[in-house]
Design a binder for these strands. Structure first.
Lengths: 124, 124
DNA sequence: TGCTTGACCTAGACTAAGTCCAATGTAGGA
DNA sequence: TCCTACATTGGACTTAGTCTAGGTCAAGCA
């Protein structure tokens, strides 16, 4: 555990945190100015492969990193400002996929992204 | 309707078709060699805004374009080879999101991506 | 026919996000 | 102290997509 890895882990802490790699880099650099982009990417990649952090891609631009990896959840995204909330829907969408719709696949997981307008953008 | 737009529309025809912009460009160029990337992007953008084609992003790399825009459906993606099938699950995941999990958002839609291993990759 | 207009198309430059790599730094063991 | 292994760095590179300046072409009109 080096100083670089510690600040990356510190930056990714809290609820409803979904930072891009660039944002992680900017915040890490605020604490440790000489940290490089490559190190941030390496560290994020390791955190993901350790299962400590999830990659989520709610838009086609940057990947986002979600430290809430231990409780399964989905995402609710504002179509205007891009705000993201973690949500825990009832039901299990995996069970909704009948065998006839599986095309012989071994289905292992499912990602659900709800899209809408957040109260801030709706009010404005 | 110009020749360029026609070939783009022709390339995007059929079931379970999910081409990247690059693949669309390659196939369109096979029929009309002088077609440019910008024209392909423009035409795809217009087809999307006309509602004739859906943008789907099942990985973080390229957007894919799905001509099956008139029947709501979700996607089943092979984690190894990236093959994509259109699927029509039972149930409505929108109904599974209780008000307490909506954080005041006006929820308008939902995308579901199932992930697994296709029969080809499982057999190999 | 020749001019004007506007839509469309092209090539190529540019941008953003991410990956790769050679060189450097550093911690810990012999 | 010296070695080795590994982490880090900066910068080049790649990929996907967007932007822009200029060119082409057909329709409308005198």
């Amino acid at each position: 555990m080096t100083a670089q890895r510690r600040v990356v882990a510190e930056v990714l802490d809290g609820d409803h945190v979904h930072l891009t790699a660039d944002e992680v880099h900017a915040r890490a650099a605020a604490k440790l100015p000489e940290i490089s982009r490559a190190t941030v990417y390496n560290t994020l990649g390791e955190l993901v492969s350790l299962g400590e952090v999830l990659e989520v891609s709610t838009d086609r631009r940057a990947k986002r990193y979600d430290p809430n990896a231990h409780r399964p959840h989905h995402h609710l995204v504002c179509a205007q400002c891009g705000a993201i909330r973690d949500v825990h829907p009832a039901g299990n969408p995996l069970a909704d996929l009948p065998d006839s719709e599986r095309f012989g696949f071994t289905v292992e997981g499912v990602e659900v992204t709800y899209r809408g307008i957040c109260p801030n953008c709706a009010g404005a």
